[in-house]
Design a protein around this nucleic acid. Structure first.
Length: 905
RNA sequence: GGGCGAUUAGCUCAGUUGGUUAGAGCAUCCGCUUUACACGCGGGAGGUCACAGGUUCGAGUCCUGUAUCGCCCACCA
């Protein structure tokens, strides 16, 4: 193999698929300590994540990319630390979403689900699931997700269905599930109840309708009432006023007549009524408004349902029966106008409840549903968050959790859908007994009759997804997986499904397993477009991750979503950022090519290991610092910052400086070259390990090449710790770099190299300013004072990095005479002269040096002020000393600048 | 109405134990086929860190208030 065999540009497209298939075939995605294996050791603590199961109907979007990248990063990190890491994948049957999809498909053929009947519809949905359900999991693989696919689950598969039944029956037996008529949010389009969370409110222009509620006694008196939904007049059973409202007190207890219908209903007093709003009198429709429902219960009002499941007026609506709700609104209002009952209509902004899925207007309706008595579960959930048994990251979201738990309403778990877990309840047609059972009963335990009919409702999707962390591990069976891997470690998800999912898992987990389902909740933000706008199809700003990965590679996209993110905060994503990170992947690739080339060209047989050069020591010290920082940042879930640090180190330190310095060392040949190649390998190896959780593909590919090249060469360092085969088999299971204690030499080497960098930069700067062509080697004279020894050892590196002709490079402690015809500058108390005959414009030099002196003087003044203040007494001695040293250096520099400027007089 | 977040370079954003002259990517300007990389290299310009107070020797970072934007929850007919 030679460098030239590796393409100049990293080819991710051929690499990614091959690497993923290889990882999977080698079994690297399986936990290293597995109850299924004979050498299983139950005492080793595993790291476990249950994937937030995407909808089986789903197509990959950036949200998926973000959470999968983050979870994969956590899993890969732990795996590389030697922790048995299990990531359980799977998909959710997503009741409403999937049913809608299939219905839409059928609609194209002109078929309604009712035409097929329940069984056939279910059969076709399964068919559809088998056909397309694999799409999303394939796309998840594409991102590089190192899930244990042999443990993949689906919320409707056999084991999970068993878990759902167990959960339902237990709650029922405990008296925590009840069935009854309640006011629910009804979706007329989907013809099912939906939960409060599935309703979204939108501000829309509407009208406030004012009309007369005539007294029934024929006196001609009336109470003015305002409503936004006139059609609900058909269901009115009272008019309410505030008990202390002087305008209406006299009517309380009397009867008024429902417009058009002519029913007589009472006027009641209730302090719920806001005297200042509208007319101060409120019509009460207990059947179609949650507040009215509550008032109705307080006052024992009859309840009239006047809409059917499709939101058409039913038989209680008299002449309006059969009309759509909005049609009825128009017609009724027109009729009332004709009857002289209308006062006025005002424009009014409504807060319209709409279905999150279908988008149609939700109608509050009373219907018989199944509910979970949630208060005891919520209380338990609150306790584990309060005690810290479950930690929320970022911490500020704990407030959100509490707030919701404290105001929680009973959970409506029944849905009138055909796709989902059918509620395990049977009704005996003979004796009307209700049977709740873990297994399908055949006869009624009470009367022995065999005419049993199962409840037609299915369970809310979130009822089953709430069981996910343990149902996927085998619960309710005490399986080896459940025993070993539960509770899981981290639940990573978006903050938008805290209520839907996270809290339900906590509540159900505590209830059914007696344990928290996970110890940490890590919440990520949402991905927005490059201007911070929410991505939506209507705005047309949706970025599809698949073509992005096709064009720029998976690693680039992963790195972008990981590094752009800070926990709990939304991030903006643009293709520009992905592009920049694709360049980073390419930078890695080319650094790899260089190192491999260096290995190949280095002499084969080492004689003596030479001392490390300053550059060798410096880059190693820098690397150790990065490793320590990354370790600390990972512990604090600061993945983005960790990635940035590695990026900066790799590009800014390793590639820009160390590789350049190494070129000189390599050119020396012999032992120096041999060991420099090994040093390059060592640093690159550590960098690849650090980066692997972020950009798994390019790092794995490169690491393999690097390892082989180092082995073949017999390098002093080969990127693999020994295992029984002699080598770590793959980067994915290689050890993550461990932080080491800070050693004394690090600070000194770092400072020395920083000195070199500063002087090199000053020279480069001068060169650019004087328009010296980069290729031209120039003479230089440096008076380095007490820094001479440091620079002396770095002569070669120095000359190379600054473009100095080594034959015309004078380094001295001090000069007897300032070189003539030279461009001069002073840095860190050192004088630098570049004899550039013909380029020296005395006047320009004086101006430049004067400006330099002004800058330095400003710094000196600042430091003088600072050190003259109480800072000197109060700040830690170390900090003060640092500033004092700085002042001395600046003063020294100023003196030298002054000397230089005088030489131009 | 209650809660939360954001406000840092032209744009998008980092900056979590308070401590150099506040950083990155993109954009921009100048110069470079320097034998890993032009998906690159070197150099530059660009910021009163929203505003007003406060704590501190020291504040982008901590506290209080204000403004603007955004999100969540609750919702008055």
């Amino acid at each position: 193999m030679s460098t030239f065999e590796l393409p100049k540009t990293y080819d991710f497209s051929t690499t990614e698929q091959r690497i993923y298939a290889w990882w999977e075939s080698q079994g690297y995605f399986k936990p290293s300590n597995d109850p299924a294996k004979p050498d299983f050791d139950p005492s080793i603590k595993p790291f476990v994540i249950s994937i937030p199961p995407p909808n089986v109907t789903g197509e990959l979007h950036l949200g998926h990319v973000a959470f999968i990248s983050t979870e994969d990063l956590m899993i890969r990190y732990q795996r590389m630390r030697g922790v048995p890491a299990l990531w359980v994948p799977g998909t959710d049957h997503a009741g409403i979403a999937t049913q809608l999809q299939v219905e839409k498909l059928l609609a194209k053929q002109g078929i309604k689900r009712e035409d097929l009947g329940r069984d056939e519809f279910e059969r076709r949905t399964w068919e559809w699931k088998h056909k397309y359900g694999g799409q999303i999991t394939q796309q998840i693989r594409r991102i590089g997700a190192s899930c244990d696919w042999e443990r993949e689950r689906f919320t409707l598969d056999e084991g999970l269905s068993k878990a759902v039944r167990e959960a339902f029956v237990r709650l029922y037996e405990k008296g925590l599930i009840y069935r009854g008529p309640r006011m629910v949010n009804w979706s007329p389009g989907l013809k099912t109840a939906v939960s409060d969370l599935e309703v979204e409110y939108s501000q829309e222009p509407g009208k406030l309708y004012y009309f007369k509620y005539m007294l029934a006694d024929g006196s001609g008196e009336f109470i003015p009432v305002a409503t936004t939904r006139p059609e609900t007049i058909l269901g009115d059973t009272a008019v309410a006023v505030h008990p202390e409202d002087e305008r209406y007190q006299k009517y309380v207890g009397r009867m008024v007549t429902v417009p058009i219908l002519g029913r007589e209903i009472p006027v009641i007093a209730d302090d719920y009524v806001d005297r200042a709003f509208g007319t101060g009198a409120l019509k009460i429709t207990p059947g179609h408004d949650p507040n009215d429902y509550a008032i109705g219960e307080r006052h024992n009002l009859p309840l009239i349902s006047m809409l059917d499941t499709t939101a058409h007026v039913n038989e209680n609506g008299g002449a309006y029966a059969g009309m759509d709700r909005f049609e009825a609104r128009k017609k009724l209002w027109a009729d009332m106008q004709a009857a002289g009952l209308v006062i006025k209509e005002d424009a009014y902004t409504l807060n319209v409840p709409r279905s999150q899925r279908g988008g149609e207007i939700i109608e509050p309706m009373v219907s018989t549903q199944w509910f979970v008595r949630i208060a005891p579960l919520a209380k338990a959930a609150e306790a584990v968050i309060e005690s810290g048994e479950i930690k929320i990251v970022p911490e500020r979201f704990t407030k959100t959790f509490y707030n919701w738990l404290e105001n929680i309403q009973d959970w409506c778990i029944s849905r009138q859908l055909w796709w989902g877990h059918r509620i395990p309840v049977w009704y005996c047609q003979d004796c009307k007994e209700t049977i709740v059972s873990r297994t399908d009963p055949t006869v009624c335990p009470k009367c022995g009759g065999s005419h049993l009919e199962q409840e037609t409702d299915v369970l809310d999707t979130w009822f089953s997804s709430g069981l996910w962390p343990f149902s996927t591990l085998g619960w309710p069976e005490e399986t080896p997986d459940y025993r070993y891997f539960y509770p899981t470690s981290v639940l990573e998800t978006g903050y938008d499904i805290i209520f839907f999912w996270v809290l339900r898992m906590i509540m159900e987990g505590l209830e059914f397993t007696g344990q928290v389902p996970f110890h940490t909740v890590y919440l990520h933000g949402l991905i927005r477009d490059e201007h911070g706008q929410k991505m939506s199809k209507t705005k047309g700003n949706v970025i599809d991750p698949l073509p992005i990965m096709d064009e720029m590679g998976t690693d680039a996209l992963r790195f972008t979503v990981l590094v752009g993110a800070t926990p709990g905060n939304d991030m903006s994503l643009s293709t520009k950022k992905v592009e920049a990170n694709a360049h980073f992947a390419n930078k890695l690739w080319n650094a790899g090519r260089f190192v491999i080339g260096a290995l190949e060209n280095a002499p084969a047989a080492p004689v003596n290991a030479p001392d490390w050069t300053l550059a060798d020591s410096w880059v190693w010290a820098r690397l150790q610092t990065v490793i320590r920082d990354v370790d600390r940042l990972f512990t604090n879930y600061q993945y983005g910052e960790a990635g940035r640090q590695i990026y900066d180190f790799f590009w800014g330190d390793f590639a820009d400086w160390y590789v350049e310095a190494a070129k000189l060392q390599l050119s020396e040949g012999g032992d120096r070259a041999f060991y420099t190649a090994s040093s390059l390998v060592r640093v690159l190896d550590a960098s690849l390990r650090l980066l692997h959780p972020f950009t798994p593909f390019v790092t794995e590919e490169l690491w393999g090449l690097l390892k082989r090249a180092a082995q073949e060469k017999g390098a002093a360092y080969v990127p693999a710790n020994g295992d029984e085969n002699g080598w770590e088999a793959a980067l994915i299971i290689a050890q993550y770099p461990l932080p080491t204690p800070v050693e004394d030499w690090e600070a000194a080497k770092t400072a020395d190299f920083a000195l070199l960098q500063e002087v090199v930069r000053a020279i480069r700067n001068l060169r650019t300013e004087k328009r010296v062509p980069p290729s031209r080697k120039i003479p230089a004279v440096i008076a380095a004072g007490d820094r001479l020894s440091v620079l002396e050892t770095q002569r070669g590196a120095f000359a190379l990095l600054a473009g100095i002709d080594p034959a015309a490079f004078i380094l001295a402690a001090s000069l007897n005479e300032i070189p003539a015809n030279a461009v001069a500058i002073a840095v860190l108390g050192m004088e630098i002269y570049l004899p550039l005959e013909g380029l020296v414009d005395v006047e320009a030099e004086r101006i430049r040096l004067q400006k330099e002196m002004d800058d330095v003087t400003t710094q000196i003044e600042r430091l003088n002020t600072l050190l003259g203040s109480s800072f000197a007494e109060r700040a830690p001695a170390q900090v003060v000393e640092r500033e004092r040293q700085k002042l001395i250096t600046f003063q020294d520099t100023l003196a030298r600048l002054r000397g230089q400027i005088e030489s131009y007089q």
